[in-house]
Design a protein around this nucleic acid. Sequence first.
DNA 1: CGCGTGTTGTTGAACGCTCAACCAAATCGC
DNA 2: GCGATTTGGTTGAGCGTTCAACAACACGCG
Lengths: 156, 156
Amino acid sequence: MAVMTRWLDPDEQRTWRAFLTASRALMDTLDRELQRDAGMPHAYYEILVRLSEAPDRRLRMSDLADATGSSRSRLSHAAARLEAAGWIRREECPTDRRGQLAVLTDDGFATLAAAAPGHVAGVRRHLFDALSPAQVDQLRRISETLAEHLTGSRPN
Amino acid sequence: MAVMTRWLDPDEQRTWRAFLTASRALMDTLDRELQRDAGMPHAYYEILVRLSEAPDRRLRMSDLADATGSSRSRLSHAAARLEAAGWIRREECPTDRRGQLAVLTDDGFATLAAAAPGHVAGVRRHLFDALSPAQVDQLRRISETLAEHLTGSRPN
DNA sequence: CGCGTGTTGTTGAACGCTCAACCAAATCGC
DNA sequence: GCGATTTGGTTGAGCGTTCAACAACACGCG
C-alpha cells in the first residue's frame, strides 16, 4: 500500500524557505562580487584556493574535483577555461599515465592573492557579521552534520 | 592607508567550508532527484509552487520573480520553457498594459502534485531527518537573520 | 498636457553545468 | 598472463543563468 506523504509542518516550511532564500542570496551575492572584482565565478575561485594550499600548488584532477565538490566533467571544463586564462596549467602525472595534474601558475596565484581580501571581506560582511558567535558555532555543527549525512564523510 | 585584511580564523574557515559543502551537496542532491523524477530543475519546481499558492493560481511576473528570488530575465526565460511544456500560460495584466500574468495550467498543477510527495520526502530525508529539533530551530533563526540581512526583508 | 524618468518584461550572446558517451590506462579475477 | 571490469579524464550537446541592451508603458512634475 502506498505510503501517505508526510508534508512539512508550518515550522519546517518556514525553515526550509528561509534556508533557500538565505543560501541563494548569499551565494548569489558572493558570486556577483567575485565576478565583478576578479572576473571569475565562485566555483573557479575555490579551485584556485585548493590548488594554492596543495603541496607544490598542484593536485590530481580527481582530488581537486573531490575537494571542490564538483563532478569530473565540470572540473574538466573549468580547467580548460582556467588554463586558457593562464591561471593553471596541466601536467602529466608521473605515477599514473591516465592522470593529469592541475598546477597553479604564478599568474593564477597573483590573481588569487588580489581577489582574496575582497572576497573574505564579503564573506565576513554577509555571513559572520550578521550572526552571533553562538550562531556561528551552531551553523558549523549543522553544516558538518549535513555534509557528513549527504556525502558520507566530513568536509575537508 | 589601506586596511589590513582580517582573514578567517580556523573556526570561521571550518564553518565556511562546511557550509559550502553542505549547502551545495543538499541543493545538488535535490536538484538531481527532481530532474530525475519530475523532469524539471528545482528552480522551476519553486515557480510552480508559488503559482499554485497564489489566488487564482496566477501572479505578476515581477512578484513571481521576487517570490522565487530570481532576476526578471531568468524568470522570463524560465517562463518561456514552462509555457512550452504546457505547465503555465501567460495572460495580459488588466491594470497595467506592460504587465504579464503567469498562470498555472491544470497540466502544470497535476505535474506539481505528482512531483511534490517525492520532493518533500527528499527534503525531509536529506535535511530534517539529519538534524535535531533544536538544530532545526537554530537553522531557522540563522537563515531568517541572513535572509533579512541580505535582502532587506524577511523571507516569505 | 508633454517631457523626462522609472518600471515591466523580453531578447540574444556568452558562459557554466549536466548528462551520456567515449578513450585510455590500471586493476581484478581466474 | 589475459580478458573483463573499474578508474581517470575529456568531449559535445543541450539546458539554464547572467548580463547588457532594448521596447513599451506608467508616473511625476513643471
